[in-house]
Structure formats: C-alpha cells, structure tokens
C-alpha cells in the first residue's frame, strides 16, 4: 500500500482500536497499525496465498469473499472498518457501505477516480481507460463498479452517509494541491472517512 495512503488511514484509526479490514491483502496495513497504534485488527481476504502471508505476519485473518456479504461481524463492536481499493470490485457497493457502517460507526473507503483527466482523455478517444492506476483492460478488470469522485459523494449523500473527512491523492501518490482543489479532475484516488448521519 502506498505510504501516503497508509499515513492518512493511520491518522483516522484510534489507538488500541478494534479494526476490521475488508480485502486486507497481505495484511501490511493492519500490521502497520498493530505496530504503530497497538490496534486489535482482523483482515478479511479470499486469496489463500495472501491469507498465508497475513498469518506469517501474525495478522488475524478471516477467509471470506466480501462480495458474498459483509455480515456475521455485527456483534464484534468494531471501532472502525476499512475497505481500501476494493469497493469498485463489489457487486453491491452501496449495500457494502451500509453494512460496514452497521458494524462500526466509522469506516474508511478508498477508491480510484474514473473522473481523473487521463481517464477522460481515454474515454474521449472512444476507449475504456487503461492507466497505471487502472491497468487492466475492460474484459480483464475486477473493477466492475468504477465511478468518479463526484459519483461516490453523491451516493454517500443519497444513502445518508456523512463524509467526515476526505483526502485526494494525485498521480505521484501524494496529497497534491491540484488534486485537493478539483479532485474530480485531478485526483487518482479518493480516501474517505465516513460516518453514519
């Protein structure tokens, strides 16, 4: 995970909090949070190899396909749930958002921005965008629900989800001025801290 991204998330996660990370990959974010903030973290992952890496790092992990449901964890009282770069791969992103906010009062969601100017140029030339952030062709990509920053924020409003904080990353992976000023055009990724309204 990019340094800047994990730095932002690190700021939002409460020290010694109970955290669940959907689509946790090799567990590196959770491991960082365990080391720096002494959190109790659980990852959810479907890939066996990545699960093995989590376990070797001492990161508790649950094998589950998040597309088949983010449920069964409501009783665990999480402080915060995280879904980094995965929501666009889900069949029902809005359901996932609502479920996450059921099991924790706050959640962190990050997603690639289809409104980024390079994507728009791609589309203007009549092709689906293929960029360093979205490297796969339309027929190979897992990203079945791509959206723009604007689209996502509209969804949050419609679902009654409060955007407590947001940070926009530019193509260098940093929190650039232009990306913050006009995120829908210049951000490659939106990083959100969401809350129930």
């Amino acid at each position: 995970m990019a340094k800047e991204l994990s730095k932002i998330i690190n700021k939002w996660v409460p020290a010694e909090g109970k955290v669940i990370d959907f689509g946790c990959g090799d567990g590196s974010l959770l491991k960082e949070l365990m080391d720096s903030k002494n959190i109790l973290g659980y990852g959810v992952e479907i890939n066996d190899h990545k699960i093995e890496v989590c376990i070797s790092k001492g990161v508790p992990v649950i094998k589950q396909d998040i597309d088949k449901g983010i449920n069964g964890f409501e009783s665990s009282n999480f402080d915060i749930s995280i879904m980094a770069r995965s929501i666009q791969c889900l069949k029902e992103p809005s359901l996932a958002l609502n479920r996450m906010l059921k099991l924790s009062n706050r959640c962190v969601v990050t997603l690639p921005n289809l409104g980024y100017w390079k994507c728009r140029i791609n589309l203007a030339s009549g092709k689906m965008p293929v960029t360093p952030e979205l490297p796969s062709s339309w027929y190979e990509t897992d990203n079945i629900h791509l959206c723009t920053i604007k689209d996502f924020e509209e969804l949050c409003m419609k679902e009654g989800i409060k955007i407590k904080d947001s940070v926009f990353l530019d193509s260098k992976g940093g929190n650039g001025k232009l990306a913050s000023l006009i995120p829908n055009l210049f951000a490659i990724e939106g990083v959100y801290l969401l809350e129930k309204q």
Partner: peptide, 20 residues
C-alpha cells in the same frame, strides 16, 4: 468453525479462520 471465530472476535481474541 466460523461460529467459533465470531465468538472469538466478540471476545477480542486474536483469531484466524481459514477454509481450505
């Protein structure tokens, strides 16, 4: 096994659940 995992998480036990 998942039932045990959920109960473990409810009790803040460091617990992993894997299906193979």
């Amino acid at each position: 096994g998942k039932e045990i995992q959920i109960a473990a998480m409810n009790n803040n036990i460091k617990s992993s659940y894997v299906v193979l």
